[in-house]
Every structure is written in C-alpha cells, then in structure tokens.
Design a protein around this nucleic acid. Structure first.
Length: 593
RNA sequence: GGUCCGGUAGUUCAGCUGGUUAGAACGCCUGCCUGUCACGCAGGAGGUCGCGAGUUCGAAUCUCGUCCGGAUCGCCA
C-alpha cells in the first residue's frame, strides 16, 4: 500500500485546486479518448474524475490497462475544470485530479451486473453477489443512514437515563406465538434453546430488578414465511419502563421518533401523533395499520340496504355481515373493461365474491351495476352517504364481518396506489390503541393473545374477562407509519393473580404456565413495579426513511424469500459428527454424510 | 402448503399461431480517437432457449413431468 489516501472521492472542491492529493477507490467508469483517459473513481463517499493525459507516456500506458472495478491508488494535482467542462450532476463536478502516479492494487473480473444505481437485475442475482450489490451508492447510503439511525437512538435514550442491557440469544422456547428458531444443546442432550422472538420476558425481569428505564437495539428471530417487509431475523429497538402509564411510553416514543426524523432526515415532525382506536381503524380503513396519507374512508351501507330486495345485500346484513363502499373521486367514467379487470383483481387478491359499483358521470347520470335489483332511492341514499358527486365512482363489497372490512381495506390501498392519491413526501405517524385483549382461534378452539400474554387488560374491562373475553380491550398500542406497523407495545400485567387469570383465559393451565413462564411468575412474588414498553422495528423504519419497499435494501446481508442466503449457501447440511455431538438423528427421508 | 405468473447471451428482455444460421439493448474484448462524464466510431466474442420425456419430417415455440424464481393467500402471540 504505497499510495495512502489524503482525501476521499467525495471531498474535493474548487478550494482544493492546486493541492497534491492521493485517492483510493474503485474504477466506476473508464472513458478512453485515445490521447486522454478519464476515470471516475468511486468510494463510499462519492466519485471523482481522474485525468491521464499523454504528457507522461509510461503513466498513460499503465492507465490504458484500467478496467471497471479495478482497485487503484492515484496521486495527482487537483485542477479546477474549465467552465465548459463542469459537470453539474456531480458533487465534485467542478474539479478533476490530474494523475501523476498510479498503482493498481487489484484487477477485477467483469462483474455479473453493473455497479450503479437503477439497475434492474434480479434480486436473486444481486443477493448471490451481495458484496457487489453493496457497492452500489444507493445501498451504501441506506446502510450509512441506518448507522446514523442507531447513533440517534442511542443518544436519545442515553440522554433520558435509559440503561442499555444485552439479553441472551440462547433462551427458552415459548410455543405461544410465532415459530421459534431452535438451537440444540451439546452439553445437555436432547434439550434445545430457542432464539428470541423478542426479549419480552427478560425486559420484564429487568423491571423487577429495578432497571426502570431499559432499552436495547437487538436482533430477534421468527421462523415464519417471509414477505417483502418480513425477514426471519430482524432488529428491534426494545424499550421497557417502570412506574408508567400508556401516555408515558407514547410520549417517550414520540420524542424518539422526532429526534430520529430530525437527525436522519432533517425533518421536523409534529408531536403528539394522531391516535385512533382499533375499532375505528378497522371500520374506517379496514386494517389495524391504516395508511392515513390519503382519504377514501370506508362507508357503511348496511343500514341502507338491510331491507333491500337485492338478496346479496339483505342476506349479507341479516347474516351479520356488512355492505361497505368507498368513493373514488374522479373515476366516474371508468370503462367497462377497466372495471372488469378491477373486479377480477379484487376477487383474486382479496377473496371477495364480487365487486359492485355506482358510477356518476355526465353520460349515464347515476349508473349502478345492480340497479335493476335496487330501488332508485336506495342507490340515491348510498350516493348521498358516500358523499359522491358528479364524476365519482363508488365501489361496493358485501360479505361477512370482519373479512369484508379487510377486503375493503385492500381495495382502498389499490385505489390509492393506482390513482396516485398517496403523497409520497409525507410521514404519517399514527397510534392505534384499544386493541382487543384476545381473539378467538376457530382452528384451535381457544383464545389467543392478540399482542402477547403479558399485556394488561383495561381496568374498566377486567370484569368481562370471565364471561365475555372477546370484548375486553387491552392496554396495547401500535405505532403505524405510512401503512406499516413499525412498533407495538403495552402496559404489562404486574400482578401474579391477573397473570394467572390471563393464562387461564388462553387455555394454559397452571402447571403449563409454571413450566413455561414460572420464572416470571416467581419473580412477580418479590415486588414488581407497574411497567410497560414498546418494541420498534428498525428495519422497517429505516426502509421507509430510505424510500424503499423492501427490507432487503436496508439489511447488509438479508435472506431471500425462502429464508436462505444464496451467497454463503446457508442453511446447509452438516457433518454426521456434528449431529452426533448434538444427539440429533435426521429422519430417514433426509440424508447427511 | 394453495393459487397465479415466469425461466432465452454476463444483465434486462424480444422471439412462442412449430420451419433458413435464435435477435436487440447494455455490458465485455480489439482497433481508432486529446475534454469526456450514458464519450463516440468501426469490428468481434459470447447461447445445454432451466432440466427430462413426449407429439412431429422438424420444437425456444405444442403436451406432460420436474427443478428453480417471483407475486399473493395461509402463517407472522
């Protein structure tokens, strides 16, 4: 390494003109004009143009060998570019470095894809060569932003007297909830650790221990199927506080988000955030994580059509379902073909039985797709309730509650995207509160916790826990940003008796409760402060701040859709000796050598 | 696990109602070129049309199977 850099490739400006500098980096582009060779030299800070002219013939000859992605060192003089040669697209576009010395540190084969932003190469190929993908400026910026993000989080919590505590990755498996990643124990034959889905129990134990303000930026693991916004290992900002109510946690979180937005994006957001109950979110937006960057609220037509002679409407309402609509402004003249395609898509993607519409346009007046079954005043009443005007389109779905709300929510998002109703430049934070404590699982014939089994019920609903558990609301809250759930938490149960009652409700008998969570119940014998907290999804938040829609753009080495890393070939088979040590034998259908 | 879509050059794709030697763009290689910055110009290399079987005189193209990938639903306390 004989040419050690004095500057990075994004640093030089006109004021450095005349300076003798050394740069290191990768050859991004080579433009060989014969008598003069231009090289765009790239590092993670930027790109600087290097010039090799013919004055030094040996050097020029050497520069002719340069190819894309060669790693080089260049010593030269910074020169201000002539007026006509300034490149306004480049940060360093007013200068160039006239090379006097060149060292080629490493040659490079042709890369499987070009190292630049905006390439359309398959994610699969990019993941296989992730180290090359990570050379692309956009992904480098994302990871640097993520680093800023972490700095900002730590500074915030440090300033607010939080203690950062690391909790174990090897812990006890808790079958409740998502599937655990298991780790066999060599020392303890036949026994397994689980990787944490979250450090939930540990952070509650820390409250028992008296660490009244705890946080951690921590990896969590869930062995479930992947999505664009779901990876098997992901990072949370885990927070827990003692002697607090909901508002204390929400306030602290809002302060954190405000600082992050300021530090990372330079944006000052308003706090406190809007709040909405779970019921309101579901009824108005058809989801518990509404994207409030655009309107199109759901309108309920059930009362208008419950007496209707149109059986699909009246029977749906009679069976406890709902007839819902949304008004799509300015789409009243949508053609038959477009509506048919939309209907097909809605059926395919939401499972809705069909799509009914009312069009309001000059040509047809008010035109409803099922008008021959409906009284004119029924159609008019729906138009009025939807507040639809000339030129608007009303889309209607009928179906069982709660499915039809979810379907309508999906349709609403489709319309928002398709008709460009979403303001991409805004960040809409929203608290969703008053979640149900439990939900009936018709497959397993039991209740399961909507949040987790340690979430406290609302005091005013506690009496319903025995008779009408589905009606009990919890002290849980979710933080939603632009339609993504970016965090969730709750005030926890801090009484042993209530915790037992909760386990009862979930069908976990006291023996099982003792076996699974005995350590927590025992801890609660010795003085528990009231406590609660929240966990925020780092990957998702950074993804949204980076303007992306895939978590893989903000994770250095992500897994593909099948939870594999094609780059290093994991997961992989292991030697028989390794399995033997772990006291594991594979099923006959599987082989290992 | 279900449903739908796809697999052709290093990359992104076209070709698919069967028919000459499978094309384009970018990338790559060679030559020319002293102000380019998506450099330009000229030339060139590069293909198991995912794999297997079938139909046919003839298959990238049609059929079946299989593998791989993507979207979506289930799943994600």
């Amino acid at each position: 390494m004989s040419l050690t850099r004095t500057h990075t490739c994004g640093a030089l400006t006109e004021s450095d003109a005349g300076e003798k500098v050394t740069l290191n980096g990768w050859v991004a582009v080579r433009r060989d004009l014969g008598g003069v060779i231009f090289i765009d030299l790239r590092d993670r800070y930027g790109v600087t143009q290097i010039v090799f002219d013919q004055e030094n013939e040996t050097l020029h000859k050497k520069a002719e060998q340069l190819r894309t992605e060669y790693v080089i060192g260049v010593k030269g003089i910074v020169r201000k570019r002539g007026e006509e040669n300034i490149n306004p697209e480049m940060k360093t576009g007013t200068i160039e470095v006239v090379a006097h010395e060149l060292e080629i540190y490493s040659e490079a084969e042709t890369t499987p894809f070009e190292i630049k932003d905006g390439i359309e190469t398959n994610e699969d190929t990019r993941l296989k060569y992730r180290y090359l993908d990570l050379r692309r400026p956009k992904i480098q910026q994302n990871l640097m932003m993520r680093s800023d993000f972490n700095q900002s989080v730590r500074a915030y919590f440090y300033d607010h007297d939080f203690t950062e505590v690391e909790t174990p990755f090897l812990m006890k498996s808790t079958p409740e909830g998502a599937r655990d990643y298991l780790v066999p124990s060599r020392v303890n034959a036949g026994k397994f650790f689980a990787l944490p889905q979250s450090p939930q129990t540990y952070k509650q134990l820390l409250m028992v221990s008296g660490f009244d303000r705890y946080f951690q930026i921590v990896k969590c693991f869930r062995d479930e199927d992947l999505r664009a916004d779901r990876q098997p290992e992901f990072t949370q900002i885990d927070v827990e506080m003692s002697f607090v109510n909901e508002d204390d946690v929400l306030d602290m979180t809002e302060g954190l988000m405000k600082k992050i937005m300021h530090d990372v994006k330079g944006i000052d957001i308003d706090i406190p955030f809007a709040r909405m109950t779970y019921d309101e979110a579901l009824q108005t937006y058809g989801t518990d994580k509404p994207d409030t960057r655009f309107g199109l609220p759901i309108v309920n037509f059930s009362e208008i059509v419950e007496e209707s002679e149109f059986k699909i409407f009246s029977r749906t309402v009679a069976d406890g379902g709902a007839v819902l609509g949304i008004k799509v402004p300015g789409q009243g003249d949508m053609g038959r073909g477009a509506i048919d395609r939309l209907t097909e898509r809605v059926q395919r993607e939401t499972g809705a039985a069909g799509l009914i519409y009312i069009k309001l346009n000059e040509q047809d007046g008010i035109k409803c797709s099922v008008e021959k079954f409906l009284k004119e005043e029924t159609v008019t009443a729906m138009v009025e309730k939807a507040e639809a005007e000339q030129g608007d389109l009303v889309l209607i779905l009928a179906g069982p509650d709660p499915q039809v709300y979810k379907q309508m929510g999906t349709l609403r998002l489709m319309m928002g995207e398709e008709h460009d109703l979403i303001d991409q430049s805004t960040y809409n934070f929203l608290w969703v509160t008053d979640f149900p404590l439990v939900e009936w699982d018709s497959d397993e014939h039991r209740y399961h916790a909507l949040h987790h089994p340690f979430t406290a019920p609302k005091p005013e609903d506690v009496e319903k826990m025995d008779d009408d558990p589905a009606e009990v609301r919890s002290r849980a809250y979710d933080l939603v940003l632009n339609g993504y759930e970016i965090g969730g938490g709750s005030i926890r149960i801090n009484q042993r008796e209530q915790q037992k009652q909760m386990f009862d409700l979930l069908g976990i008998d006291s023996e099982e409760a003792q076996e699974r969570f005995g350590f927590l119940l025992d801890a609660f014998k010795y003085g528990v402060p009231p406590h609660g907290g929240i966990a925020l999804g780092v990957d998702r938040i950074v993804m949204i701040l980076a303007g992306g829609t895939s978590l893989r753009d903000v994770i250095a080495f992500p897994k593909n859709k099948n939870a594999q890393s094609t780059m290093d070939g994991s997961p992989a088979e292991v030697d028989k000796e390794q399995l033997d040590e772990l006291h594991i034998r594979l099923k006959n259908t599987l082989t290992n050598n």
